[in-house]
Design a protein around this nucleic acid. Structure first.
Length: 500
RNA sequence: GCGCCCUUAGCUCAAUUGGUUAGAGCAACUGACUCUUAAUCAGUAGGUUCUCGGUUCGAUUCCGAGAGGGCGCACCA
């Protein structure tokens, strides 16, 4: 759509001028709304039948979403955040002057209406308009589809279907699609229930830097920016981890942060360059304790979302305890051989058999991980903890007690997707320095996802870092799982797009 | 990043093998209509067919390049 005024936009500007000429302010300052649409609908007693008197007086406000003019009467529907209610305007009740103002109203205008409720012949609760105010004139037509209800199912005709325009103009998408609003109401409920769960365990919510002089805590390419006054590069964080663990050193024994991480990577239906991450760390807990926390957290989130209209029906029933499988035995049993004992060439043969692309380009740890993804992860449907990862796949986790080839790490999978990643966190500064230095070597050799040595973080750890469990959960993906959504853009209000 | 597909009126979609003036529904505009609900009826108007270039007597259609988007694969959460 261009910004040039086409005939549709011109017609609305002309109505705007006509309203001003008639003494109507097309953009009001406020409205004394007394009822939401949903409240108003419940106020008319069911005993009130068509033709018998009138119910209580209401004052509602919202957007005009349907308009049916019949000469000297008009039926319309008004929608607000709670639902819709029908309006009825009569020329003989409003007078000619006020009734004529209605001819300058359009779908999309925001109005306030007051009058008594009554029931129409077809049984619908309706406001008999005694007075009405224009609150905001709509100068650009919203892409409303017409709706009809057949056998209880809403069928929408000629709606707003172009996915590109729906993402770019989310305001219009939300305005015409109540079910899209439901997704984001569910998102808000999810965040609230997470806070309430962790606060209830005496966790402290904190905010750590988004702009960081060094990035770390994950393997990813960062966004880089520059601070003018300091004349230095800064990176947008790829994870919260290292700052949260500094806080545990400082004596905050249970901390969490909900915030955006930024990764300079491709965009597809499960990746947005900025995404919402929950991380929480608990001193004196190990990964066993954290598994219990994750279980209870997810159950409480799912319960909270079940109360959201429409969306609630989709929420899967989560029944703890979740299944637990060990990484190495589950892989060996799926492959039918001892995978960790295989040589390079046997591993590459196995990779090809299970469908891994370009196994020749992959390092040994990466190969094994790919085989695991193909044979085990992708088959997991019910929420399942995979525990005890090989140390070569888990540079940030403490070695497993009694088996230093493994680490105390778990990931939670459901529907073949990773939902959470957690460790007994490494708190040995000497071991940590060695691991960071090997990362720095990889970075110097050109690995774009490797991080550098964070001396300040090591200093913090040297003061003494209590043992702790830590968990990271990607909240966009959690919401996708809970609401059965396949595209991450459908759970992010304003997903990253190229400029129009 | 690679492959396949899409882009036509404000919205949803048509248009035969490359052929006259690119059609329809909704929305808009004019008129009729005092219980309608995809309101109905009559009429009117609305187009740089994503952009640029090429082939052709003639391009929405065929070819090339570009832009934006969707899906799949790879990487990542």
């Amino acid at each position: 759509m261009t910004d040039d005024l086409n005939f549709v936009l011109k017609a609305r500007r002309e109505k705007l001028e006509a309203l001003k000429t008639a003494g109507v302010n097309p953009f009001a300052y406020s409205y004394a709304r007394e009822h939401t649409a949903a409240e108003a609908v419940t106020l008319l007693p069911p005993s009130e039948v068509h033709g018998e008197g009138e119910g209580p007086h209401v004052a509602v406000a919202g957007r005009i979403v349907a308009w049916r003019a019949h000469g000297k009467t008009v039926f319309a529907h008004l929608a607000d955040s709670t639902g819709r209610i029908q309006l009825y305007f009569r020329k003989d009740q409003l007078g000619e002057e006020k009734f004529n103002v209605l001819s300058h109203f359009d779908l999309g205008d925001i109005i306030g209406v007051s009058g008594p409720l009554f029931r129409t012949r077809t049984g619908e609760t309706t406001v008999r308009a005694q007075s009405f105010d224009l609150l905001a004139k709509s100068l650009r037509p919203l892409p409303f589809g017409k709706e009809e209800i057949v056998d209880g199912e809403t069928i929408r005709h000629s709606g707003f279907a172009d996915p590109e325009q729906r993402y770019r103009q989310r305001y219009a998408d939300l305005a015409v699609h109540p079910e899209v609003r439901s997704i984001f109401q569910a998102r808000s409920k999810m965040i609230t229930s997470i806070r309430s769960f962790l606060d209830g365990l005496d966790y402290l919510e904190v905010e750590t830097p988004v702009l960081q002089p060094l990035y770390g805590g994950a393997a990813a390419r960062p966004f880089e920016t520059h601070h003018n006054a300091l004349d230095m590069p800064l990176f947008l964080r790829i994870a919260d981890e290292l700052y949260l663990k500094r806080l545990v050193v400082g004596g905050f024994e249970r901390v969490y942060e909900i915030g955006h991480d930024f990764r300079n990577e491709g965009i597809d239906r499960t990746h947005n360059p900025e995404f919402t991450m929950l991380e929480f760390y608990e001193a004196y807990a190990d990964y066993e304790v954290m598994m219990g926390r994750v279980e209870k957290l997810l159950v409480s989130v799912a319960d909270a979302l079940r109360a959201v209209p429409v969306i609630g029906e989709k929420i899967p029933l989560l029944e703890p305890p979740f299944k637990r499988i060990e990484w190495v035995p589950s892989l060996n049993s799926a492959a039918g051989l001892d995978v960790m004992a295989q040589g390079e060439s046997e591993l590459r043969d196995l990779s090809r058999r299970v469908g891994v692309q370009h196994p020749e380009d992959l390092s040994r740890p990466k190969l094994i991980d790919e085989i695991f993804q193909a044979l085990v992860e992708s088959t997991i449907k019910e929420p399942t903890f995979v525990v005890d990862y090989p140390v070569e796949l888990s540079p940030l986790a403490k070695p497993k007690r009694g088996n230093p080839a493994l680490t105390e790490r778990f990931e939670l999978f459901a529907n073949g997707k990773e939902m959470a990643n957690a460790f007994s966190e490494l708190n040995d500064p000497i071991d940590q320095r060695a691991r960071l230095e090997s990362q720095a070597t990889l970075k110097a050799a050109g690995d774009l996802e490797a991080s550098g040595v964070d001396e300040d973080y090591l200093r913090a750890m040297e003061y003494g870092m209590p043992p702790m469990g830590g968990v990271g959960i990607g909240l966009d993906r959690l919401l996708m799982y809970l609401t059965d959504t396949v595209n991450i853009r459908d759970v992010i209000l304003f997903p990253t797009m190229r400029p129009e």
